[in-house]
Design a protein around this nucleic acid. Structure first.
Lengths: 198, 198
DNA sequence: CTTATTTCCTGACCTGGTTCATTTTGGGAG
DNA sequence: CTCCCAAAATGAACCAGGTCAGGAAATAAG
């Protein structure tokens, strides 16, 4: 069992706000390391999402199930990403999403109350969470725009270009449902591209 | 020319964070009132969005134009809503959106630098912006989910139920493009409902 | 009040993407 | 190594929603 260092997490924190050593330690003391096995769920509908999760190692997928039983991927997360059911977490209401490990993983968790205390304790902590929320809002809006303006194939191309590492690590049906198409259609898109190259 | 009071704005601020009178005045001093005529643009592609805009009176629409010249509405804003090109504003990069007044309107504007100073000046101001960003991220994510899981007609029904006031104030083609469908298709949906009632 | 423009409606046809059913592939568990 | 089962590919029929074109209503402008 290799010891997964938290170095990347500290870098991640410092990249956004220039914390002092003391501050970094206070932040770290609010996080708990946790090992999650492949196929294990860390969030499920009906339960309240109690944590914000940083991925140290591994990969996760958040998805919802619609009225007709279809799965729709809302988010992926690999190393150095955060994942949760955002609405459930910030409003502390029952989740609508599943969040499941796609591989054996290691995460760092902060629970809701600790986060509140941290934000209240010091302006700089608040700043850090404000920046995270801003970036998240901006990201979600870009996704809305992409869904409205791009065709299925264009969305796939965009995704491959922006997140080539994720494409290789997640099952195709999960990617298809993230991009808003069926797995069959994504299969056709990919196949067409292979043919073109020859 | 009726004097549009800023009472609603103060309520809006106090609802999220319990500011003191002094704090409220400091915040207010960063905002400028502006009258905008119908069809006037407050944000355009290529230009950087310099302001965050609170609608005191009137209605706005933010939209992008895609490669094939189609408009796609990203956001509406009526009284007590905020509007800008979020990505352009927070990263201070050139906008991709148009934001236009749908009616003669009155807005309160804060410019980017004043916002930065405000956030740096006091923890509570930072908190307020953090809460705004969180809610915005949560909202955007609900929209992504709705786009992935609901049919065109369901999205229309959801919108009518949640924002009946907006439905009555914006042109149909703008609503259609917000919901991710053509104006023709929305027309059919509406017509079908009228028939059913008889 | 008249005219010009923009918005909305309606019908006929079209297509990107889905559905369903079947086959092939590939990656674990024993 | 092989057996099994989930994931991916493939073919054919189908449909939700789009496109195009012409006309009717509603607003705005003169």
């Amino acid at each position: 069992m290799t010891d997964t260092g938290i170095g990347p997490f500290i870098e991640h924190l410092k990249k956004r706000v220039p914390f002092t050593e003391r501050e970094l330690n206070e932040i770290l003391s609010c996080f708990q390391e946790k090992r999650i096995k492949k196929r294990q769920f860390i969030i499920q509908p009906e339960f309240i999402a109690r944590h914000r999760n940083y991925v140290l190692k591994g990969a996760f997928r958040a998805y919802v199930i619609d009225d007709s039983g279809e799965e729709h991927t809302i988010q992926f997360a690999i190393e150095d990403w955060w994942i949760s059911d955002y609405n459930s977490y910030i409003y502390q209401t029952p989740a609508t999403m599943f969040v499941v490990a796609l591989e054996d993983s290691v995460i760092l968790q902060i629970d809701y109350d600790s986060e509140q205390r941290l934000k209240a304790a010091h302006h700089r902590y608040e700043t850090w969470f404000r920046i995270m929320a801003e970036r998240s809002a901006a990201y979600q809006q870009r996704r809305v725009i992409s869904n409205l303006t791009r065709t299925a194939e264009q969305r796939y191309d965009d995704f491959v270009e922006r997140y080539p590492l994720i494409v290789q690590r997640v099952p195709q049906y999960a990617l298809a449902s993230y991009l808003g198409m069926t797995t069959e259609f994504l299969s056709r898109i990919r196949n067409k591209k292979v043919k073109k190259k020859s």
